[in-house]
Amino acid sequence: MSYLEHFGLGREPFSNAPDARFYFNSDQHSQALLRLMYAVDSNKGLAVLVGGVGTGKTTLARRMLDNLPESRYESSLLVMVHSGITPEWILTRIALQLGVVEPTGDRLKLLKQLYTRLLEIDDEGRRAVVLIDEAQMLQSRELMEEFRGLLNLEIPGKKLLNIVFFGLPELEDCLALDEPLAQRVAVKFHLKSMSVETTTSYVKHRLQIAGARQMLYDAEVIPLIHRYAGGVPRLINTISDNCLFEAYLCKMRKVDTRTAHRVAGDLGLLQQPLSELPRDKANNDLAEIESMLDRLEQKQ
């Protein structure tokens, strides 16, 4: 019997894999989405969403994509997976995603093709939107200049392309590589870590989506999880998931505080709760935790 069966769950409630089913519409995510949609709907050109590791950027990017119906938007989400990409590469990919048929290898002709396509989209009464996730990987000035060039594709009084960057705080450094581009950021939103109350709602939400019939954590456990996770959703998921697994091993119906402490200890979080760490230290540790979580996920 898996722990899913033990707790009567239909699916894993705290997987860190992107899953729109588990989208949790917290107040700040709702506010962020509102502003990003405003930027797109009013043709602001460039909008940026910045958040720490695991704060829900990717989730929000996907949520935004869901909010852009094809009837009104020609939209695409590009997820940067490595930092070695070239300007031509990204330009070609954007052209393809926006519907340019057989993009040429010549940069200038490609830009012409893209411009023609953008005009078509505009004629259809739609807006062209490109969302870039993990945008902190765009680490060269050339790339930034390319995006600035794209933002210049416009007809009098109207931009033809809207771009939204989602990324870690390092994204700010990338933007600084091209000051004129940095100045074109029309909307910027910072995702912060969750409060205890939001964490409680978040955990309940995930459990409910997973098919839980009851609360699987003692009331005192959630504040503990929040404390050890520093309010970071991804860490909350990890701790919560491990707690459930431990409770399953102990044949418990609910996670208690003892289990939570034990899990935190196993994850190396017991001595110094993240919420009490200085910011830089916490960031460094977050990187370590990140790699540790990656390892854990690989094990699973």
Binding site: D66, S76, L78, M80, V81, R93
Partner: peptide, 10 residues
């Protein structure tokens, strides 16, 4: 399902 072709990994 409808988003799959709109998401691209670069």
């Amino acid at each position: 399902q409808g988003n799959r072709d709109r998401v691209s990994y670069v």
